[in-house]
Amino acid sequence: MSTSSRRSRVLIVSDHPDRLEQTHQALLHSFPHLHTATTSCGRLLTAEQAPPPPEMRGFTPPNLVLLDFSNQAMASTPSATSILEKIRGLPAMRHIPILVLHPNPLPTDIHTSYQLGANALIPRPIHFNSLVNTLRIMGEYWLETVILPKAAGRGAV
């Protein structure tokens, strides 16, 4: 197995802490050396603000983003599309590949995701084992086959 996944930093964003934990563990299952950052509720905190909030001081911008969203998001959380828009609007993050995981994408979800600059929309399996499998295939391509852009200076989560 290639070691290039060791140098990758993946940011996982989800609207649901339970599913976030599942996706996170499923990804680490196949790629234990990844450096990861996760955030539930989809909040985007810009670490560019000075000084950055204490919990963000150790944050280095990722070189791959996984957006794990569903249509049944908790009411108060932003939607996947608004987060996509926000990431694409941040100079430090706009070149970072974004993969969207969606449990049951409708045609409009597929359209808007690519429209807003998602690099791939992946149907998210419900069973953990299938999820591990899907993320392994995803990672073999995005983490070990392609060359990811270098993480820019201080960016945003």
């Binding site: 339970d18 976030l20 934990e21 996170h24 050396h33 990844l34 509720c41 989560v157």
Partner: peptide, 25 residues
């Protein structure tokens, strides 16, 4: 992750955003 899962219900009920930063395994 195990410990988070035990507290997951409370985290969700209280609408707490969980962020993790793992620099190394």
């Amino acid at each position: 992750s195990d410990a988070l899962n035990v507290n997951m219900a409370a985290l969700m009920r209280n609408r707490i955003e969980v962020q993790t930063l793992y620099h190394n395994d």
